[in-house]
Design a protein around this nucleic acid. Structure first.
Lengths: 222, 222
DNA sequence: CTTGCAGTTGACCATACGGTCAGGAAATGA
DNA sequence: TCATTTCCTGACCGTATGGTCAACTGCAAG
């Protein structure tokens, strides 16, 4: 979002905004390309995606993509990294929560929201992992592993404090990931089973409520 | 690698077995090709898979694949259909079960077993759905929809009979699919978080037990 | 205005891919 | 044995893809 402090009639003055025209162009184009790439990679897979398709969707000549991103792999890598960061941000919900109802409930809410707002990203992530994580293996082994260990400890603490039943924290986490991401990754199947129509706001709310209810009852936190 | 199953010794005698040599050759080769294709499609996606790769994995010349399967799409379609049938067979567990503990518990067991024995098939299915189900859309709209409606009715019956809490049967089904298939589709991630080693028999048993426990407690059937 | 650099793009290239085909090998039936 | 059908496969082809490049445009500093 560019800041338009004084929106005057002539754009000659407006063009002289803070971040500099050059940087602005670069940022905007990278944004457009990354968004197009995310969608195409999600819908066609890495192998099925073509630079031409991404270029068409971004409304730019193919050669221009290669000016901003050296190779197809490079572009793909940036897309996956971007998703990973969004995905990790949702994990914040977990921290400084007094108990499982707030911690896990908030985490489910956040992840369900991401499944709705970033379905393409979730699919790219899923596809990447399914293919053996060729470009994010190091993330899995460092960041994700550390994060997972930390949350398992947090859950174990809640168990020790008697705030929930003694369930295996690891498999509980897997269930959260699987269930919340399912609404993005298998969104097409869900839509087909919903008479071909996307879930309404009300249906999304019901989905969130169902997931939270099932999980929180399952761990005996309600 | 040329096929040299039985060299000169038993060749003449054994070749006169029941189903006819021709049919036998055809069946065996189709089997080998389908298995190789399932693995390659799962690991590389439809777009990333090449007929040459599948041929190499099957130990046959590429032209031979096109003798048995006209096009790449045709081969892919057969792979997906094969998976769909295995997947539907597991659904039998659901039928004529007196209550949710046997019905849902048995279904979870069956689907977890499939996730372990047919991880490639599960991934191909997931990939197909994520890409908008270009070749199995009709299956989703007919067979899968009918099956889903039937199971929802069965679950609702259990609810009406007071055998479980009143949860939304549809979202419960989604949770079962998501959770069980996660162990196949995200198997690489799970393995990475398990110190890079595949789950042992004991760990798989623990996973099954955790999933069943969480779900059956969640629906109040235990 | 001049110079220089970031951004833009049509045309082009080497490669790899899905698919074809002709002709040979092996099995089957009479 | 011979004729016919099925099976096998190296060589080949048109196309599409990722990537390159040289020429061009336009912004911005001196």
């Amino acid at each position: 979002m560019p800041q338009n402090d004084d929106q005057m009639t002539a754009d000659a003055q407006i063009s002289r905004i803070k971040p500099g025209r050059r940087t602005e162009i670069r940022r905007e184009n990278e944004r457009v390309i990354l968004d197009a790439a995310e969608k195409v990679f999600a819908e066609a897979g890495f192998g099925g995606a073509t630079m031409q398709l991404i270029a068409d969707m971004a409304g730019l000549p193919k050669a221009n993509l290669h000016y901003y991103f050296a190779t197809k792999e490079d572009l793909y890598r940036k897309v996956v990294q971007q998703i990973f960061e969004i995905w990790l941000d949702a994990a914040m919900q977990f921290d400084d929560a007094p108990g499982p109802v707030e911690g896990l409930g908030g985490y489910i809410d956040a992840k369900m929201d991401i499944s709705r707002t970033h379905p393409y990203g979730s699919k790219v992530w899923a596809s990447e992992v399914m293919h053996g994580a060729p470009v994010i293996q190091d993330y899995l082994e460092t960041t994700l592993r550390d994060w997972t260990d930390g949350r398992i400890a947090a859950i174990q603490r809640w168990i020790d404090q008697g705030k929930m039943r003694p369930v295996d924290p690891r498999h509980l986490l897997y269930m959260l990931w699987a269930t919340t991401q399912h609404y993005a990754d298998f969104g097409h199947q869900i839509q087909t089973l919903n008479d071909g129509k996307p879930l309404t706001d009300r249906q999304w709310a019901a989905a969130k409520a169902s997931v939270k209810d099932l999980v929180l009852r399952g761990i005996g936190a309600i």
